[in-house]
Design a protein around this nucleic acid. Structure first.
Lengths: 234, 234
DNA sequence: CAGTGGTCTAGACCACGGT
DNA sequence: CCGTGGTCTAGACCACTGG
């Protein structure tokens, strides 16, 4: 057993999630009163479970008709790592480390990571490929204080998997995306001509109000498009 | 009176929203039991009201302590128009129309707008400036069927304001962002050299599952950065 | 009509934080 | 200790949808 939260609304939620996760959009979810019967629980408890699934976007309520599996409409701004991003695009991600060492934070990195100048940080620079060809150069700084022994533990392929294993997967991130041309060094690494268009992406990723990663990536424009979804809640 | 929804959880929600909307982050919201007293309602009703404000991101619960005004942490992926975007950056937006006419939808536009080829569409091409200097060229197609008389009504400055006035403000949008270099025509309009880096943004905007706008914009890379925020709900 | 979700009540016990 | 939010109960009536 990994864990069995006695919380009834969690039990109901996970039961319904398992039922509906793979189901085609438009499928009917169990009705609330049906779940009341099955779990021997009050309807408010079932509603609490369903509410969270509706908020997640997995389900959709239709008053008078029932509750149904919603069509995904894309995952709204799902926070993904390079590895996950490439996998979703059907490309094989690879990385080679150009640099990985402990450093003292400079003023810019310190401010971005919300630590004080001179604090220890992990500087990790990688050339990332997709289906064998260069895709981007990523220059990441991690907060060493909350990642003890990260460099010694052998560098993982997916940073976000490693963070998740420590319970530090980013829950919020901000990217700034701009266009530019490659300089000579970048062009050589990315296997394009100097002056070729590139996409520069700067990311600041937080886990519950603590900044765990700040990075700058430069992507080959001919290989990368950034997709962004916006939803007006309210 | 505009309207007074008898719905109690709405009354409570709007009461609390009015109290907290302008309040500084960290301020205490009324406690749930206090609201129970004030409105003479059940606690589940108060919780329903507070839940929606917490989901909106206005409030934050701290078990054992109370409920507090959350710090905004940026508006997550707020869906904005060019006009709003520039205003938020503190720049003065201007537009000059390069083309505005009724056309028959071609295959690509028809698919994007989710209409049939040959249906009437509004084609609106503008050169957009910010603080006097060229910022981008925007090429937009609108679904004429749901915007009768749009061309005749005099073109507004802000498309999204005009859509909002018709109750058709986009509630969801997807952008694809890529880097490229300007061709000769674009360079001339944007007042840069041919081959200068540009950001290409293609947008598809829906109002409640109906596509109202599809557009392609090309931004001067030296003047534009796209900011994106991601939040993992759950 | 029967079934659905939407709203609402009037309580209850718990774990937690601060005094 | 008391007040907070978190969970939960066992009902109720309503508006809406479908057959």
């Amino acid at each position: 057993m990994s864990e069995a939260p006695a919380l009834k609304h969690v039990q109901v939620r996970e039961y319904v999630r398992a039922l509906c996760e793979g189901a085609p959009p438009g499928s009917a979810a169990p009705s609330e009163r049906e779940l009341v019967q099955r779990f021997g629980v009050a309807r408010m408890t079932v509603r609490q479970a369903m509410d969270s699934l509706v908020n997640e976007g997995l389900l959709e309520r239709m008053p008078g008709r029932g509750t149904f599996v919603a069509k995904p409409k894309g995952e709204v701004g799902r926070l993904t790592s390079y590895t996950e991003d490439m996998a979703k695009r059907g490309l094989l991600p690879e990385s080679s480390t150009l640099l990985a060492r402990r450093e003292q934070a400079g003023p810019g990195v310190a401010r971005a990571l919300d630590i004080t100048e001179g604090d220890a940080v992990i500087h990790w620079k990688r050339l990332r490929r997709a289906d064998g060809a260069p895709m981007c150069i990523e220059d990441a700084y991690l907060n060493e204080v909350i990642l003890p022994g990260f460099l010694q533990s052998g560098m993982p392929t997916s940073l976000y998997d490693a963070l998740e294993a420590r319970g530090l997967r980013p829950t919020w991130a901000e990217d700034s995306v701009s266009a530019d041309v490659a300089n000579d060094d970048e062009a050589a690494l990315l296997d394009v001509e100097a002056g070729a268009p590139v996409l520069r992406v700067a990311r600041r990723a937080l886990h519950e109000d603590k900044c765990v990663e700040v990075s700058r990536s430069v992507f080959r424009a001919d290989r990368m498009t950034v997709y962004v979804q916006f939803a007006d809640a309210r």
